[in-house]
């Protein structure tokens, strides 16, 4: 398209080149990392012939495997809880008025914008204090681990789920619910058979976001993880700090692959979201 008001000549060229360079900037490092994960050279950034060795090591390394297991369990449990709570929060904010709604709304925003170091400190101090109290009052000696990680992940995921679900609810015609109640559905049936199916793409999108965030987090988890339970990112992070090895390349590529599968799924959820929005209009 050539239009007199769109940039022309060198400005247009500059914009195009800038765009290609940014994509190069985004993807070249990732692609090179994938390439080097198949390199036989012990030196992480050098090509030394093709090998699967590092992926084999990934499968055999106990530390990696147990961290992967913890990561997956943490992600699933925290996502499940966050989706239920986040969806309820979204419904309450989009469909009801009640006292304290404004405060609740603002509170839900905070975990999204808070820097993760601050959140990490908050959770660390909270659990330290909490376990001290349990010890002092009930003589219970608990320590950080799976439970504290899951609790922290839920605390930051709820807000993201509720934002995504709210966006979906806001775009939905609430006369549909009224219509179903007119057709003798109870409140619960209206929710179960009309609202829920319609907001499902939003709920799915929120769940994928929560999974991604849980699988990504390093800082908060590092603060609340116990000796026996580290997640994969925290484990990899501590490996990197001790020195880079080709094993890390392979683990990284696998983590990247998981991310990309989740993106693909979320783009898919987004598409069906748009498709069903079209129908409801």
């Amino acid at each position: 398209m050539s239009s007199p008001v769109l940039p022309r000549g060198s400005a247009k060229l500059g914009l195009t080149v800038n765009a290609w360079l940014i994509y190069l900037f985004f993807y070249a490092p990732i692609l090179l990392l994938v390439v080097f994960s198949f390199s036989a050279d012990k030196n992480v950034g050098r090509w030394g012939g093709f090998t699967f060795d590092w992926y084999r090591e990934f499968g055999q390394n106990d530390g990696v495997q147990s961290a992967l297991g913890v990561s997956i369990r943490v992600a699933l449990v925290s996502t499940l809880v966050a989706v239920v709570l986040g969806t309820m929060a979204a419904l309450s904010l989009e469909r009801f008025t009640f006292r304290g709604k404004k405060v609740f709304d603002a509170l839900l925003y905070l975990p999204i914008i808070i820097p993760d170091v601050t959140m990490a400190v908050m959770m660390l101090l909270f659990f330290a204090q909490f376990f001290d109290l349990l010890d002092a009052w009930f003589g219970l000696s608990l320590s950080k681990g799976f439970g504290s990680i899951v609790i922290s992940h839920i605390a930051f995921s709820i807000s993201f789920v509720s934002v995504v679900v709210r966006a979906r609810l806001a775009g939905m015609d609430d006369t549909l619910e009224e219509a179903s109640m007119d057709l003798y559905a109870s409140r619960w049936q209206a929710f179960r058979y009309v609202t829920l199916p319609l907001i499902f793409p939003g709920v799915a999108g929120g769940a994928l976001l929560a999974l991604t965030l849980s699988l990504d987090d390093v800082v908060i988890t590092q603060f609340v993880a116990g000796p026996g339970s580290t997640t994969l990112p925290v484990f990899v992070f501590s490996l990197i700090r001790r020195g880079v090895t080709p094993l890390i390349n392979a683990v990284s590529v696998i983590m990247l692959a998981i991310s990309i599968v989740l993106v693909a799924l979320s783009l898919f959820a987004d598409r069906s979201k748009r498709a069903s929005a079209k129908v409801s209009n």
Partner: peptide
């Protein structure tokens, strides 16, 4: 193609630069 890096693991994406910028990288 902007969303993919947006969603990708942050740690891994930083690590990629460690590999690129490393000795003899």
């Amino acid at each position: 193609f902007v969303m993919i890096p947006f969603w990708s693991n942050f740690l891994v994406r930083n690590y990629a630069w460690r590999v690129l910028l490393g000795n003899d990288g």
